[in-house]
């Protein structure tokens, strides 16, 4: 009985099934396109044949440095960051049953931000510990939220409220640090908006193991996330352990958000908008929503970062600005159109 109920949503007679495959293939196709775009584009223009040489020959040329040491690691970092953020957002929206849930709104990113800002402006000597600090900050914030929201179990509403409160509390501390040390604030600004400037291979090696673990765990999150969609009572009747599921999903969400913040700063918007777009296209089933959000997040960040570093030569903008400027109108357009899920 329980099996039948769960199978209904993925039934092969479902008219959306064909559409889901089309969308999956389109996203993979887009991923290939933006990867080529990211590797071939930059403020120093390099011809396609030179790009190919730089990829295949290990020589000490300027082209090799730019393509191999700057563009490729940035594309990879962008993909990993986008994937983590979008997956994190999709999971959080499921746990909270709230379409506004985003690591940036419930304070997880603010925790990471506070720790990072303290390192950057109070003790810049220890800048090497920045990723670790922001990760601990995310965990710290999630801990506070969880404790505040705990009352013989966790209700989504209490988490959201505790999260918003935590967000403003940690945000206040962050502003206080920045006001007290206002003469040093310039180095923090690009980080607060979120950017991938100066990211290279060390950052790829740093986050790749964590992202891999996070994405593997995300596979195990599909069933619990789908169960929570049914509502607590139904899920309980079907034999799911609600609290355990919820705890696991929140932990995974924090982990993924912490990874992203540790290399890219406070990039917002990806976790909010990508899962929504995907949801409008393929529906709520996490079996499709989660992997497609992950890929979609990667595509979006690679594209936006390439634009941010090549459209405004000779300076570059933090990718966070571009993401908001490109993503918001597209999101509104999809919202007005209503998606294809009906």
């Amino acid at each position: 009985m329980r099996k039948d109920t769960l199978i209904v949503s993925t039934n092969h007679d479902d008219p959306r099934q064909f559409m889901r495959w089309v969308i999956m293939l389109s996203i993979i196709f887009l991923l290939i396109i933006v990867t080529f775009y990211g590797v071939a584009t930059g403020s120093v223009s390099i011809g396609l044949n030179k790009v190919w040489d730089a990829l295949t020959q290990n020589t000490e040329t300027l082209e090799r440095q730019i393509v191999w040491d700057l563009r490729i690691p940035r594309v990879i970092t962008g993909f990993l960051v986008g994937m983590s953020l979008a997956t994190s957002g999709a999971l959080l929206q499921g746990v909270m049953k709230n379409p506004l849930a985003d690591p940036g709104i419930i304070g997880v990113s603010a925790g990471a931000g506070l720790f990072a800002v303290i390192i950057m402006i109070v003790t810049p000597e220890y800048i090497a510990f920045l990723p670790l600090a922001s990760f601990l900050g995310a965990l710290f914030a999630a801990g506070i939220i969880y404790l505040l929201a705990w009352n013989q179990g966790i209700s989504p509403l209490r988490i959201i409220l505790a999260g918003v409160a935590t967000n403003s509390l940690l945000g206040a501390f962050m502003s206080a640090v920045m006001i007290i040390y206002s003469d040093r604030v310039q180095s923090v600004l690009p980080w607060l908006v979120g950017g991938l400037s100066r990211r290279s291979w060390p950052h790829v090696y740093m986050i790749l193991p964590y992202t891999s673990v996070g994405m593997i765990l995300a596979i195990f999150a599909i069933k619990p996330a789908n169960a929570l969609l049914l509502g607590d009572n139904v899920a309980k009747l079907l034999g799911h352990q609600i609290e355990k599921n919820r705890f696991f999903l929140i932990l995974l969400n924090t982990f993924l958000a912490g990874i992203a913040v540790s290399v890219a700063g406070l990039i917002g918007f990806v976790g909010l908008v990508v899962p929504h777009i995907i949801r409008l296209l393929v529906g709520n089933d996490y079996k499709y929503l989660l992997p497609l959000s992950a890929l979609g997040g990667g595509v979006l960040v690679i594209f936006a970062d390439t634009a941010a570093r090549s459209w405004f030569d000779p300076i570059e903008l933090p990718v966070g600005i571009l993401l908001a400027a490109l993503g918001a109108p597209f999101f509104l357009y999809l919202l007005r159109r209503g998606g294809i899920s009906k």
């Binding site: 930059g42 403020s43 120093v44 402006i121 600004l189 690009p190 100066r198 570093r309 570059e316």
Partner: peptide, 22 residues
């Protein structure tokens, strides 16, 4: 305080880098 594009920096290959720190 906008950031210079790093591809431009590598292309220019500066002889000295100046830092301002607190």
């Amino acid at each position: 305080y906008a950031q210079l594009n790093i591809e431009r920096i590598i292309e220019a290959n500066p002889q000295v880098v100046y830092l301002i720190t607190h």
